[in-house]
Amino acid sequence: MTGAMPRVDLGPDAVRDMGPFRPGPTGPRLFRLHLISRQAPGALAALVGCAVLLRVALHLRWIQGGGASAQQLLLLIECGAAAAVAVATRNPFGESERSTGFRLPLLRLGAALLLTGAAVGALVLGAVGARLPGGAPQVLRDVPGLTAVGLLTAAALGGALAWVGPLTYTVVAEFALLEDWHTPWMWPARPPHDLGAWVCAGLAFAAATAVASVRGDRAA
């Protein structure tokens, strides 16, 4: 440390020596650093893995027809994708980040929306050309709904344990599929055109993204 020394006016050379960064638009650079700190690249790799698994399952006819049993493996894959998104809410910086300005809620919101969109997109792409039970609309409803459960779990238990919520919900939903429950809050068990299920999944996602934006994950 050089606290005792007079302040050094660090010129462009000193800045250049410290690495490849220059003055530029704050938003994209900050968002990129935020995503990296949340291990978003790892989450994206996990989503690609889910898409490949879905593709393989469809190709090998592990997912076939439109019955409850056909939807069970699909639901597990959707659960995996939602868990990958939810775990990426983990804040590695703790209180030093929480004591900073008001860009943080926007960053959290942007990351949650981007990764949820990537999860839906990956699974829809993974099923292109094959017959998916419920089709793309069901993925578009179920994945954000499951992600909402994960985001709320992150707020309650912390990002590292955010996968617990989607997994628990999925276990109950698998049972609901077999038992043909009618409650719209078990949206994966409802047909893709069920308006109530769409409303419940949408409400859950809106509430969860609001909570995730304002509070983030629970501090360790």
């Binding site: 050089t2 800045v15 704050t26 900073t100």
Partner: peptide, 28 residues
Amino acid sequence: VEFVEYFALLREMPPGRVPGAVAAAVER
């Protein structure tokens, strides 16, 4: 540098001042 820069941006420093401020903080 990325660690210190992240906090400079989160604390809403003007973008033009960030590289110099990061370099100064790391040197200090």
